[in-house]
Design a binder for these strands. Structure first.
Length: 604
DNA sequence: AGTTCATAAT
């Protein structure tokens, strides 16, 4: 936290030059300042002094706004400058990258070239960062060409960054990286590590191991990278062997192992290693808490979270986001709330990403009201925030509310993406707005420039199918530009079952069995169709077939959380200690339902 | 004006 700086404008500013000098001193730490109010005050004073176009002052302001995630303000400052120099362009491009405005970063870069300015060795690394997570292989190649043309290859940092960026562009990228790696006449340990990491990312474990063996020098990162390779491949025995044989083990090595055992579901082993760790940091604690949370072990998760805080560690954004994501995955409202209070105790304001994770967690745990109150309290929202909230509303049947929120979102100038439209269509499905859904679907390309993906088709099949328009749904599936997958056929089949359309169902099942001949779900769907049509001999037949093929349907489970404990139930499950009482209650509910003439459907 | 690789991640 930087110290608060008081900008005092002298009562009698002697000359313009000296005013500027005073500002220079006061502005020195502005780009590190985290108090938005303070930055705004300074901005106002700068405007008053007419210094906002100054080529020393403007970059400081842009950096400061960028750090506070105030990209709109940063853009405003930048736009005021008539003739930006390279330094200013770099600062602005860096701000774009920091706030994940990757497109704007490149647009600015192209504008800079149009203005006849040359990018320098500061510009390119920023641009490479902008390609992160975008899979912009052509742009990485373009940067590569530029760097070669202008001879920026002296420092190993440049080709190493290129290797890393290439490796983030999938298989083709890794191949380009390999070509570059092979022609480099000098390589350091980072070059090797990055290349190995890239191979692992595309699943080339054996290639990575080969390179690892060839390495002339290995550091801790090299060992940990290859260890992670084994862990990600699920080879815990090999990983453990390597772990034992490592020349030195640091926090990362230990954490990687703990994470591996958590993913394998072996929480006992995970805990044992965790307890033996000589040093634990935030990441290690996050791994163990999330590990318990994903498995639904709410009590252990909460206890570990509290132990972490007792150890004097304050969860950061990464910790909070991962734990909340695990809560959302397994519905651990208790832990989610506990993390929320902890954040509120530490911080005055959450970052956008943390708030998004909170919205998502509350929505997925069924607490739509809490999700809404976090969402409404957010001072800044991004596309992810809207998408989480829309999805939450749609998922819980608040279709109308979701569509209202969608129109507010557009009023506020947000451009919907494909996730948004899935949520919108899903809202129509759950609210039964068939015609409205069709309208959104037909116009999504024209209105939002989004070509329908398979997920959107899935929503439409669901929408038409539930509405009883089975023929239209079937026609849509046949006319799809992409091959229908299991989800699409399954959805259509579900609709057939709902409307007792046995004829169409058998047709659909043919397609489904061709795609997934051994999926037990298909058999139970088939059996359920026959069951709803009252064809019990066919049902028996299907069950017999399943038995012959040795197929067992993994039974679906439902779970509820009571007092920080998750109880899971499957069909005919008698394992719960209060099983008798539970079945008594079910029977009573069944009688109550009969009394109001509702006949419960029973499926396989 | 700032740097690359390893563990958690919306």
């Amino acid at each position: 936290m930087s110290k608060q700086m008081q900008i005092s404008v002298p009562v009698r500013a002697p000359t313009w030059v000296s005013t500027r000098r005073i500002f220079q001193q006061k502005l020195q730490d502005l780009h590190k300042c985290t108090s938005l109010n303070h930055i705004k005050q300074v901005h106002a004073q700068i405007l008053k002094q007419n210094l906002h176009q100054d080529l020393y002052v403007a970059p400081k302001l842009i950096s400061a706004f960028s750090l506070s995630q105030e990209m709109t303000l940063a853009i405003n400052v930048f736009k005021q400058i008539p003739d930006p120099n390279v330094h200013l362009y770099n600062t602005f491009i860096r701000a774009c990258v920091q706030n994940s405005h990757s497109l704007l970063a490149f647009e600015t870069f192209f504008e800079m070239q149009r203005n006849g300015l040359f990018a320098d060795n500061f510009t390119y690394p920023f641009l490479l960062k902008a390609c992160d997570g975008q899979s912009w292989l052509p742009l990485v190649k373009m940067i590569h060409n530029h760097l070669e043309k202008y001879g920026f290859f002296q420092d190993l940092f440049v080709p190493n960054s290129l290797i890393d960026s290439y490796c983030k562009c999938g298989l083709l990228g890794v191949k380009s990286a390999m070509r570059l790696f092979k022609v480099m006449d000098e390589r350091d340990v980072v070059s090797w590590n990055s290349m190995i990491r890239g191979l692992l990312k595309v699943g080339e474990l054996s290639e990575a191991c080969k390179l690892f063996d060839e390495m002339p020098m290995k550091d801790a990162v090299s060992w940990n990278t290859i260890l992670d390779g084994y862990v990600k491949a699920g080879e815990m025995n090999k990983a453990f062997g390597l772990f034992e044989s490592m020349p030195e083990r640091n926090v990362v090595s230990w954490s990687t192992m703990v994470s591996g055992y958590c993913k394998a579901g072996d929480m006992e082993m995970a805990r044992m290693l965790f307890d033996r760790m000589p040093v634990k940091n935030l990441v290690s604690w996050t791994i163990i808490v999330s590990g318990y949370a994903v498995k639904g072990l709410a009590k252990d998760a909460i206890r570990s979270f509290e132990q972490m805080e007792e150890a004097g560690l304050k969860p950061d954004d990464g910790t909070v986001i991962s734990i909340l994501a695990s809560c959302a995955e397994s519905g651990l409202l208790g832990l989610g709330k506990r993390v929320h209070t902890s954040i509120e105790r530490i911080r005055y304001k959450c970052s956008v990403n943390v708030s998004n994770a909170l919205v998502d967690m509350y929505a997925k745990c069924g607490q739509v009201d809490r999700a809404l109150s976090v969402f409404n309290g957010m001072s800044k929202k991004d596309l992810v925030s809207w998408n989480c909230m829309l999805q939450g509303l749609a998922m819980h049947g608040h279709g109308e509310k979701a569509l209202q929120l969608f129109s507010i979102m557009r009023q506020e100038g947000f451009r919907p993406d494909k996730v948004t439209l899935v949520a919108v269509l899903c809202a129509c499905v759950h609210a039964g707005f068939v015609d409205e859904g069709i309208r959104y679907f037909n116009n999504m390309e024209r209105d939002y420039g989004i070509v329908p993906h398979i997920e959107h088709y899935g929503c439409m099949v669901d929408l038409l199918g539930r509405g009883g328009r089975l023929k239209e749904a079937y026609r849509l599936v046949q006319s799809m530009p992409v091959e229908p997958n299991v989800v699409i056929w399954g959805t259509l089949l579900g609709a057939c079952r709902m409307h007792n359309a046995v004829g169409l169902a058998e047709e659909v099942l043919d397609c489904l069995f061709k795609l997934e001949p051994s999926d037990p779900g298909n058999y139970s769907l088939l059996s359920n169709i026959f069951a709803s049509a009252g064809d019990w001999s066919s049902v028996a037949n299907v069950r017999l077939q399943m038995k012959n093929f040795g197929i067992q349907k993994p039974s679906g489970a439902s779970s509820i959380e009571v007092d920080d404990e998750v109880h899971e139930f499957t069909v005919f499950d008698k394992s719960h200690p209060k099983s008798d009482k539970i079945y008594q209650m079910i029977n009573r509910l069944g009688l109550d339902l009969k009394r109001v003439h509702v006949v419960p459907k029973v499926y396989l």
